[in-house]
Amino acid sequence: MSKVLLIEDDQSIADMISIYLAEEDYVVHWAADGKQGTELFHSVEPNVIILDIMLPDMNGIDLCRQFRTESSVPIMMISAKSEVSERVKALIIGADDYLCKPFSMRELAARTSALLRRSTMEKAPAEVNEKVYAHTIKLDLEKRCIYLQNHAVETTFSEFEIMRHFWLHPGKVFSREELLNNIRGIDTFVTERSVDVHITNLRKKVEADPKEPKHIKTVWGVGYKFEL
């Protein structure tokens, strides 16, 4: 059974989420503040994190940033803040999804399932996984890791998913909508700006000059493609 770490200070909301997800066969570990959430993060080793932005002892954005330096576990932020700037900020620091309050338990469960489904995808065929190209970027699909000059590059769950699709289809042009569907599923509400943020972050991590990318290229009016 998949383990969910829920960090939410409102007990009534936490109880509703815990009960609903338990009925969906998730094991939910609840923390009421950032300190307790950090302790459970290390002891439980969750498969997915649901993290409220407004916590009594710290900002959820800062906690998300902290988690992201240690793990690529999928993180869904939940908040009463619905501004686009807040969603973009969360994505930039490493969140994989953002859900605005109030939300339905059904939607929360669907998004949680989508994140877990993407993170536990079946292993790629061995011949694809072991394929090595004669250039500086390489992906290990089993370990879910990007290597640059043989050095591992830390990525978020969504960043790796985008790179994985690029890697498996070099030269293919993906629209923003296609990339969104690939990383989260068509039942999740996100914006095209989310993809732009992930692409910008990926370029900073794998391109020698992010402003003049040689691998992750923009196809104006269409989307993006990856060139070896």
Rank of each mutant, 00 (worst) to 15 (best):
L99I: 07
L115A: 02
A80G: 15
F67I: 04
E83A: 15
K89Y: 06
R87G: 09
C100Y: 07
V84M: 02
S82D: 08
K101R: 15
K123Y: 12
E83D: 15
E122T: 13
S71M: 05
R68M: 14
M76R: 01
I78N: 04
E122D: 14
T112S: 08
P102D: 11
R111G: 11
T120M: 03
E70L: 10
K123A: 15
R118W: 03
S119A: 14
S113I: 00
K89N: 09
A90I: 05
T69Q: 10
K89S: 01
Y98A: 01
Y98H: 07
I92F: 09
L116E: 11
V73M: 13
M105K: 08
A109G: 11
S104T: 15
A109F: 06
A90K: 07
M105I: 05
M76W: 05
Y98D: 02
S82T: 07
L108K: 06
I75V: 15
E122Q: 14
A124L: 12
R106T: 15
V84F: 01
E83Y: 13
E122P: 08
M105A: 12
F103T: 02
R111V: 09
D97E: 14
M121D: 03
A90L: 02
R68F: 11
M77V: 07
A95V: 03
I78F: 00
Y98R: 03
A90Y: 05
A90T: 08
D96Y: 02
S85K: 12
T69C: 09
F103N: 01
I93R: 03
K81W: 04
S104K: 15
L108F: 07
A80D: 12
A109Q: 11
A114K: 03
M76Q: 10
T120S: 00
T69F: 08
P102E: 13
R68N: 15
A80F: 11
S119N: 13
A80W: 04
T120G: 00
E122F: 10
L99Y: 10
K81Y: 00
I75W: 11
E70W: 02
S113F: 07
R106C: 10
A124I: 01
D97T: 09
V88A: 05
I78A: 04
A124G: 03
L99H: 05
S82C: 04
T112Q: 05
E122N: 13
